[in-house]
């Protein structure tokens, strides 16, 4: 893979205290990697450090094959897009998009042609003469993206591009981002939103505890989180501590035969809500419990079932059982992922 960005053991402080301690990550040209992390984990700090807006304490930043660790922001080839589009209020839309090209001394006619192309690509051609103050939130994001692409960067660094938008605008900007595919440019998009990560990412990099904890395609990440902490952050609710012995997972819920390459010793069985269903008459319930809570999610309502000392979350059947009812649960063993260690998340 041709690398647009490579971070090697990068360390960045949060003010005067240690923040990001050991960040290693690679983004290919044309690839869209989502940096997924909880609020306060250092997403913005990491993006700003890659862009040269925060000092790197240790390690290296390589953009487009060139070590830029000590280079100023203007010569790194990495454009940073703030959460709120920082359009220049004294310039109209066309002049904003032309800004990076004017800096490079590009011919006026070429700038004009390129500005038209870029505005068309983000579907705001009719706004060329407007000032940023006359644009909606979604339009501002589109213009900011066009301006960033105009700089012809090796890397685009987008900091929570959807965080400040209402649902309608989120969808609008999401579409622009998913349609924007740049062959020569890598994209690193910071977010704490799991849905955004799934929708936008070719791969997801989870930033936890000051380091990249796992990098994987979204589907793989949710199916097989590398640690219990990642599973907890991803909101995977079913985590059962036990041991794998003699081809079976032993826990307070009993023995569950397991196949394949499952680590022996203490493990945590991790599985999503949709791996647990309420047994109907035809199915053999593996475990019984009492319904203690109903979660009224819009798309997938679920029930919380207390099975002895273990709490499980399962897809709610129709009709939804009432609180206090006893239900039998069926767990699909093929989607259980075993993480070595204990649940200290």
């Amino acid at each position: 893979m041709t690398v647009a960005l490579r971070l090697d053991s990068m360390a960045v402080n949060f003010g005067s205290v240690a923040g990001l301690t050991d960040v290693t990550l690679a983004v290919a040209r044309g690839e869209r990697v989502v940096l997924l992390a909880p609020s306060g984990a250092g997403k913005t700090t990491l993006l700003r450090a890659i862009a040269g807006l925060e000092p790197v304490v240790n390690g290296s930043v390589v953009v487009g094959g060139r070590d830029v660790t000590n280079d100023p922001p203007e010569s790194r080839g990495a454009v940073y897009l703030h959460q709120t589009p920082m359009l220049f209020p004294h310039l109209d839309v066309a002049a904003n998009v032309a800004f990076p090209m004017r800096l490079r001394g590009i011919d006026r006619d070429d700038i004009s042609r390129r500005v038209s192309e870029l505005l068309a690509s983000v579907q705001v051609s009719e706004l060329a003469g407007r000032r940023p103050g006359a644009l909606s939130g979604g339009q501002r994001h589109r213009v900011a993206l066009a301006r960033a692409i105009a700089a012809n960067p090796q890397m685009l660094l987008l900091d929570e591009p959807l965080a400040s938008l209402d649902p309608g605008l989120r969808q609008d900007v999401r579409q622009v981002l998913t349609r924007t595919h740049l062959d020569g440019t890598g994209m690193l998009i910071a977010t704490h939103d799991l849905d955004d990560a799934v929708l936008l990412a070719d791969r997801v990099a989870v930033l936890l505890g000051g380091r990249i904890a796992q990098v994987a395609p979204a589907e793989e990440l949710f199916r097989a989180p590398a640690t219990v902490a990642i599973a907890a952050f991803l909101g995977i609710p079913n985590r059962i501590t036990g041991r794998v012995e003699d081809g079976a997972f032993c826990s307070s819920m009993g023995r569950l035969p397991v196949g394949g390459a499952v680590p022996h010793g203490p493990v945590v069985a991790v599985f999503a809500v949709d791996a647990v269903t309420v047994a109907t008459g035809d199915e053999q319930a593996g475990v019984f419990g009492e319904v203690v809570e109903l979660h009224r999610h819009l798309r997938h309502p679920s029930i919380i079932v207390q099975c002895g000392s273990v709490t499980l979350e399962a897809l709610a059947p129709r009709p939804v059982p009432s609180r206090g009812a006893t239900v039998g649960l069926v767990i699909d063993p093929s989607v259980i992922h075993f993480v070595p260690g204990t649940d200290d998340a």
Binding site: A51, P72, P73, E74, R76, Y80, M86, L157
Partner: peptide, 21 residues
């Protein structure tokens, strides 16, 4: 200083940031 940061990563040196932003 968000506008200045944006300008810098778009390729503007310190003087250009002062003059143009």
């Amino acid at each position: 200083g968000g506008h200045e940061d944006a300008a810098r990563t778009l390729g503007a040196g310190r003087f250009d940031v002062l003059r143009r932003v």
